[in-house]
Design a protein around this nucleic acid. Sequence first.
DNA 1: GGTAGCCTACCTACCAGTAGGTAGAGAGCG
DNA 2: CGCTCTCTACCTACTGGTAGGTAGGCTACC
Lengths: 201, 201
Amino acid sequence: MESSQGTKALILDVALDRFAEHGYSGTTLNEIADKVGIRRPSLLHHFPSKEALYRAVLLDAFADWFALVDEAVAGPQKRGWPQVERVLRAAFLFFEEHPEFVRLARWEALEGGPMLSAELGTMLQPLFERGTEFLEREMDAGRLRRYDARQLLLTGYGAVLSYLSDAPLITSLLGADPLGPAMLAKRRDHVVDVLRNALEP
Amino acid sequence: MESSQGTKALILDVALDRFAEHGYSGTTLNEIADKVGIRRPSLLHHFPSKEALYRAVLLDAFADWFALVDEAVAGPQKRGWPQVERVLRAAFLFFEEHPEFVRLARWEALEGGPMLSAELGTMLQPLFERGTEFLEREMDAGRLRRYDARQLLLTGYGAVLSYLSDAPLITSLLGADPLGPAMLAKRRDHVVDVLRNALEP
DNA sequence: GGTAGCCTACCTACCAGTAGGTAGAGAGCG
DNA sequence: CGCTCTCTACCTACTGGTAGGTAGGCTACC
């Protein structure tokens, strides 16, 4: 019971870390089991298969993300750019604090594994639609410059997540740790800045 | 000789396709050999190891990319936004025509394999620096709105490449093929649009 | 209270399958 | 002939997953 819960949670923790680091096919169960401190069969006692473990990790991670979005949207509703900035900053902060989530999502987006097309797609779609509708409403009201709302969401997605997921590459380009506090703050302000100038009417 | 050259080129071709599709660890030599139409040992006659093959593929792909950049920059130099748009559109077109390159680069950026930090990093850095210098010059001259030039380059990188590399995810969000001609044109114009509004003084 | 039965968590030993890579022989050709 | 290319046959290492067993805690019944 107690040790079970602890172990299971620990496995999920370690697995998130490894899958985020090396992707699904780049991670082995032995690797995870070793880090947890048990043998592979013991790991498979808690999760019936590698894929089941991966699913659990993915669903867990996205549950956190959905929770954040709900919370961010539930807050004091503003209009036009201020609301966009509010959500943008909340998302950025979440990603900063969950770098494993970002990389996990990126792997998933690249691989387009079975999880994605099936469950994740249908989980993300409503979110995407909600964002689209908000942007279109604000554009119609003239509070934001007009763009294709879906394209705009994808632009934000790319601008924010690429930086955080591609840290290895960006490190070698910038010659500095892109995930350090100073650089993160710089990045956050930059993206906000660019989008504000592009969006404010 | 002839068949050797042909086979070697064919191997590189197929390997690019597979590595772009499933990444390094998700691709097997058998998979490549099968598609080429030879046995794995025959493949290993042309490239001493999987890693060597991967290196060759990566270097080949980036050689194409560097060639394009040189060409794009060599053209009739303009100033301010028009030059940015020119290069941006050239890059976008190149990526559209080389979707395998985009995904390969993305995978590399994520994995941050040994290739990246060592060779690719040092290959991309001068390019990055050149872009930075151009942007800073134009900003100093007041022909572009002021931003952190490096951050701006990374934003462009993310906005363009995410869309093209994450096609599987975006398909399920958009409910349409993001790599179809119509969608590509839409994306191209959107990114140009956003950046113009953000950059023109 | 002791003890029999069951359950959870973990182990070692093993399975079949597949990964990348090697050895060596045969074919075709200059 | 020698050289290049390809093959079959093989190797070792390791993959995800299974079989079977053990230690220890909880519950129930005498």
